[in-house]
């Protein structure tokens, strides 16, 4: 009871502080925003712990953060091995191959409006399909190790990236292209100096979407067969053994990896497309 009451009190107190910060001039600044978001995150953890203890929820249903934390600290080696297997070998290599393939394909069909008109609707449609369903097929083809995971990721990220790249290459306006023509720029000059930079906001939009998809693909593919290491493998076996604290530890790693990947892409985006209105401070 005391845990429950404490958690609710903490929640109300944190909420009051957040409301004050949000209303004050501090809430307009970066630091204030970070504080509010951070406090909200802490509140969620405290509420979680309070509810788990207050209602006496057994650890096989929902372990509290106080159990998950030590599990993470105690299994760093395993978590690191899983991270390397799934994220670095599976997701990142597939992501890189898929991105390069989509990039090259987009430029290759750039000169043929006919192919573009045909490919765009199909690409849009395929992006909406549950491609994860291909995971068992690709595991059958490429074996259990990370190659099959990378293949799933390639297929998953290819079409969203392709659609964004093709749309991006068409994004320049008539005036800019005419200007290039008056300078008698060749096709390749116009491509590298005008149209590729103009396509970058679209490309990064696609990359951000693909980053999440890549992790999903790599983990799902492991449900269909994997060596005895990897995040998807660990999650499915630990769920079977009711080791939910380990599952939550893997989820924490997955969340961290996903956010980090997204953050890195956003950072590169702010370097590459510094000129774009959405990047202006």
């Amino acid at each position: 009871m005391i845990w429950l009451l404490g958690a609710v009190l903490f929640w109300l107190a944190a909420w009051a502080v957040n409301a004050r910060i949000a209303a004050s001039p501090l809430g307009q600044r970066q630091a204030g925003r970070l504080m509010v978001a951070g406090l909200f995150g802490i509140t969620v953890l405290v509420l979680w712990e309070g509810l788990v203890r207050g209602f006496g929820v057994p650890a096989v249903i929902l372990p509290g953060p106080s159990i998950i934390g030590p599990t993470i600290a105690g299994n760093l080696g395993t978590l690191w091995a899983d991270f390397v297997q799934t994220v670095i070998k599976g997701a990142l290599s597939g992501f890189a191959i898929g991105a390069v393939a989509a990039f090259v394909t987009a430029i290759a069909i750039d000169r043929s409006p006919f192919l573009q008109k045909g490919l765009l609707p199909i690409g849009n449609f395929v992006s909406a399909l549950p491609i994860v369903g291909l995971a068992p097929v690709l595991v059958m083809w490429f074996g259990f190790d990370w190659q099959s995971k990378a293949a799933v990721v390639v297929v998953m990220v290819f079409f969203p990236l392709l659609v964004n790249m093709v749309a991006g290459l068409q994004a320049t306006d008539r005036l800019s292209r005419d200007l290039m023509a008056t300078w008698s720029a060749s096709y390749w000059q116009a491509l590298f100096k005008l149209r590729l930079p103009a396509a970058m906001p679209f490309a990064f939009n696609g990359l951000k979407i693909a980053a999440t998809l890549a992790l999903i693909g790599a983990i799902v593919a492991e449900f269909f067969g994997s060596p005895i290491v990897g995040m998807g493998f660990r999650i499915s076996t630990e769920v079977g053994r009711l080791g939910l604290d380990m599952v939550w530890a893997e989820i924490a790693v997955a969340a961290l990896a996903g956010s980090a990947l997204y953050g890195v892409i956003a950072l590169i985006e702010s370097w590459v497309t510094f000129w774009h209105p959405s990047q202006r401070k």
Binding site: W15, N18, A19, I21, A22, A23, G27, G32, R33, V36, A37, L39, F40, G41, V44, V132, A211, T212, L215, I216, I219, V220, F223, M231, G232, I235, S236, V239, L244, V247, W248, E250, I251, A254, A255, G258, S259, L261, Y262
Partner: peptide, 24 residues
Amino acid sequence: VMELSVMPWAIISQTIPIVALAPM
């Protein structure tokens, strides 16, 4: 205050691969 506290976490929630949560 809702915007400041919930919005960043809503974005982070989407970077978590949901399939990790699915079996659980």
